[in-house]
């Protein structure tokens, strides 16, 4: 029983179709609110954590412990003038931040969140092929970055977009290869091995224990995709000013900013679902959602620590790393996964 069905029950006097439509609308609304709130919490935690690492206090003026700082910042961003470059390509320029943000929120609708007491699961989309859907949507996000870079008529932005393309090409492949390994292993135990939920329900050990190499490759790829400091080549601020988001201001910039934090959160959620057992905890309960969030939060903190303690890697070494190390490692992981699967089959 998930939230969707409960909502549909609530609206059932209105008729079958209308109740489903309303249920989907409300559920999506829930999800947008959930994503926004978790992003705000994350950015607050990030700023406090960063401040502690750098021996500062961090936000402490707006509200108690600076809790309202992010609201104030968001209001500032919304209230800011949108400065538009003169030679921009208008439609892609305006579309790009929306693509980044919308595809981020879309990706959140697919994840299996696990139960949360009597409320049930948050998940909106139920399908047999959620993995394909999820990684398809994830692949859309960089398109927004590339569009932003190409359409804003700025050489820094263009270079940032080129770097973003190079980065994505070299890191989607190992990412998909390590996902493939999981699908392969799950196929031995479940007929619908492309569905995240059945992968979760069929596992007897978290896949991170069975294939730590896959976890390593996938986590690195997720770091690269979220593009924070060791790999923030697309917007390396000391080289390319701000990369693809150079010409953006106001809420459009805010969308890129949220997109980046959202990617970190999304990446942590996906890693904990695929490799760390997702909603299943040490004790059987209806608290799956909480377990998932705890796992993701730990990964998020690890990501922040990496972010704050690393300098930026150079683009050629980064691409080399992707092609020369990660892809072969992912291949080896795939072979190991095959061996394990065969063992199960016997």
């Amino acid at each position: 029983m998930n939230i969707l069905l409960r909502l549909q029950e609530l609206f059932s006097p209105l008729g079958h179709l209308a109740s489903y439509i309303l249920a989907y609308i409300f559920e999506s609304l829930f999800l947008v609110i959930f994503v926004t709130i978790s992003l705000i919490v994350m950015i607050y935690v990030f700023r406090k954590y960063m401040a502690r690492i750098q021996q500062r206090i961090g936000p402490n003026r707006v509200g108690k412990f600076g809790l309202l700082q992010l609201i104030a910042d968001a209001l500032k961003l919304v209230g800011k003038e949108n400065i538009l470059p003169k030679n921009r390509d208008d439609l892609p320029y305006k579309l790009a931040p929306a693509i980044v943000f919308v595809s981020l929120v879309l990706a959140f609708t697919i994840l299996p969140y696990g139960d949360f007491f009597y409320l049930g699961s948050f998940t909106v989309t139920h399908s047999e092929v959620t993995i394909v859907l999820l990684f398809g949507i994830i692949a859309i996000m960089p398109i927004g970055e590339v569009l932003a870079g190409v359409s804003s008529a700025n050489k820094y932005a263009l270079l940032g977009a080129l770097r973003a393309v190079a980065k994505d090409v070299s890191f989607e492949i190992p990412m998909m290869l390590s996902v493939l390994a999981i699908v392969m292993m799950a196929s031995a135990r479940t007929p619908s091995s492309l569905s995240l939920e059945s992968i979760l329900s069929s596992e007897f050990l978290p896949y991170g224990i069975l294939e730590p190499i896959g976890l390593f490759v996938f986590f690195i790829s997720m770091v690269a995709r979220a593009s924070y400091t060791p790999f923030d080549l697309g917007e390396s601020d000391s080289e390319l000013v701000s990369g693809h988001s150079t010409e953006y201001s106001g809420m459009r910039f805010g969308m890129f900013y949220m997109g980046m934090f959202g990617s970190i959160f999304l990446g942590s959620l996906i890693v904990s679902i695929l490799y760390l057992g997702g909603p299943s905890g040490p004790v059987e309960s209806s608290l799956g959602f909480i377990w998932l969030i705890i796992k993701a939060a730990i990964l998020v903190l690890i990501s922040f620590t990496v972010w704050l303690s690393m300098p930026r890697i150079r683009i050629d070494k980064f691409i080399n790393f992707g092609w020369k190390y990660l892809i072969p490692i992912a291949m080896i992981n795939l072979i190991l996964a095959g061996i394990i699967t065969l063992g199960w089959g016997l």
Partner: peptide
Amino acid sequence: YGLDLGMLTPFFHCFI
């Protein structure tokens, strides 16, 4: 120099 290489943290430690 840390900032040039994209490293934010040493900057604050130096300035303290």
